[in-house]
C-alpha cells in the first residue's frame, strides 16, 4: 500500500476549495439551525444558486467575476424570501419539507434541457474562468510545499475562499454576540415567549434565513470557482453531507461548522483513498475497489447516526446548549 500517496491526498483536503465551500455552507446552516432553529434541508439549493448564479452571469451576461458573486448573493436573498414568506409563519417542520422540495425543484430546473442554453442541462457549465483568472494578483509560479503545493490560479481560489470564510466567521461571531443574536437564540427556544416581549419574530427569522443563505451561496461560488459546475453535485445528499459536517463540529457554535467541514473532507479523502487500496492489497475481501470507495458513504451515514445519538452537540458544542432531545 502506498501510504505516502494516501497521506498526501488526505493532507491536501485540509485546505481545498471544497473544504472551504463546505465550511461556508455549514456556517450558513449553523445560522439557520444551530442559532435560529430553522430546519433548512435545502442547503444544496443555496449552493447551486451560488454556483449557477456566478457562472450564468459570467457566461450569459458577460459580467466580471466579482459582479457574478454579487449576483449569486442577491439570488440567494431572493430564494430566501420566496422560501420564507410562506413558511416562516408556520411551525418549524414545515420549513424542512419546503426547503428540501425547493432545493430539488431548483436542481431539476438547472438540469432540464428546457433551459439548456443557459444552464448547460446535464452537462453543467464550464469555461467561466477568464475574468476571474485575469484578476489573479499572484504571478505565475508554484507556491507552498509538500502536499500543499499550488499554482497561481489554485492559490488565487484558495485565498479568495479563505477570505470569504474568515469574513463569514467574523460576521457570525459578531452577530451572535450581539443583542440581535440573543433574540435569534431566544426564537430557537420559544417563539411565543419572544413575541410576547414585543419582538417581530417573523422578521428575525427571515433575516436569519437570508444571512445563512448568503453564506451557503458563497460556499457554492467557491465550490464552482476552481473548475466547472456539474448538476449531479447539488443533490439532496450534498445537503446531508453539509449537515454531517455541521453536526460533527457543533451546530450552535461558530467554529464548529468549520472544524466539521475540515474533518469531513479529511475523513472522506482518507477513506476514498484507503478503502480501494485495502481491496487491492487483499485486506478487504468480497468487494471490488469501486464498491469499496462507496462504502465511505455508508460509513458517513453510520457516523452521523452515532454522532446524533451520543454527541448531539458536536465536538465544540456545549452539551446544554443544543441537543435534539429537549
Amino acid at each position: 500500500m502506498d501510504w505516502l500517496a494516501i497521506l498526501n491526498n488526505t493532507a491536501q483536503s485540509l485546505l481545498s476549495p471544497a473544504t472551504m465551500a463546505f465550511a461556508l455552507a455549514a456556517l450558513g446552516l449553523a445560522m439557520h439551525f444551530g442559532f435560529a432553529g430553522l430546519l433548512n434541508f435545502g442547503i444544496a439549493g443555496y449552493m447551486a444558486i451560488g454556483a449557477y448564479g456566478y457562472a450564468i452571469s459570467v457566461l450569459v451576461f458577460g459580467f466580471e467575476w466579482w459582479q457574478g458573486i454579487l449576483v449569486s448573493l442577491v439570488a440567494s436573498v431572493i430564494f430566501s424570501l420566496i422560501l420564507g414568506i410562506p413558511t416562516l409563519r408556520l411551525r418549524g417542520d414545515y420549513l424542512a419539507i419546503v426547503t428540501i422540495a425547493a432545493a430539488e425543484i431548483l436542481r431539476l430546473l438547472f438540469l432540464t434541457t428546457a433551459f439548456g442554453d443557459i444552464t448547460g442541462g446535464a452537462d453543467g457549465l464550464s469555461g467561466y474562468h477568464n475574468s476571474f483568472r485575469a484578476a489573479n494578483p499572484f504571478p505565475e509560479a508554484d507556491y507552498g510545499f509538500g502536499p500543499w503545493t499550488y499554482n497561481s490560479v489554485e492559490l488565487w481560489v484558495l485565498v479568495l475562499g479563505l477570505l470569504a470564510l474568515v469574513a463569514c466567521v467574523f460576521v457570525l461571531l459578531l452577530l451572535m454576540k450581539s443583542p440581535w443574536g440573543r433574540v435569534i437564540k431566544a426564537i430557537r427556544e420559544d417563539e411565543d415567549a419572544v413575541r410576547a416581549l414585543g419582538k417581530n419574530v417573523f422578521a428575525y427569522k427571515m433575516q436569519a434565513l437570508i444571512i445563512g443563505g448568503i453564506f451557503g451561496s458563497l460556499g457554492g461560488v467557491i465550490y464552482a470557482l476552481p473548475s466547472s459546475i456539474n448538476p449531479g453535485v447539488y443533490v439532496t445528499s450534498l445537503t446531508f453531507f453539509v449537515w454531517t459536517a455541521l453536526l460533527l463540529g457543533g451546530a450552535a457554535t461558530v467554529f464548529g461548522p468549520v472544524l466539521g467541514a475540515v474533518l469531513f473532507w479529511v475523513l472522506q479523502s482518507f477513506l476514498s483513498n484507503v478503502l480501494p487500496e485495502l481491496v487491492t492489497s487483499g485486506v478487504l475481501p468480497f468487494i471490488s475497489s469501486i464498491q469499496a470507495s462507496t462504502i465511505r458513504f455508508i460509513l458517513v451515514g453510520v457516523g452521523l447516526m452515532l454522532l446524533v445519538i451520543y454527541r448531539p452537540q458536536g465536538i465544540l458544542g456545549d452539551k446544554k446548549e443544543l441537543t435534539f432531545v429537549k
Partner: peptide, 30 residues
C-alpha cells in the same frame, strides 16, 4: 415559557425595550 437554553440574565435582557443592538445592522457594531 422560560427560554431554556439562554441564561437567566439573557432571558431578562431580552425583555428590555429600545436596544438598538437588536437591529441587524446595528448589531455588528458593539
Amino acid at each position: 415559557k422560560a427560554l431554556s437554553l439562554l441564561t437567566v440574565l439573557e432571558n431578562m435582557k431580552l425583555g428590555a425595550k429600545d436596544q438598538r443592538g437588536e437591529k441587524l445592522l446595528y448589531s455588528l457594531f458593539s
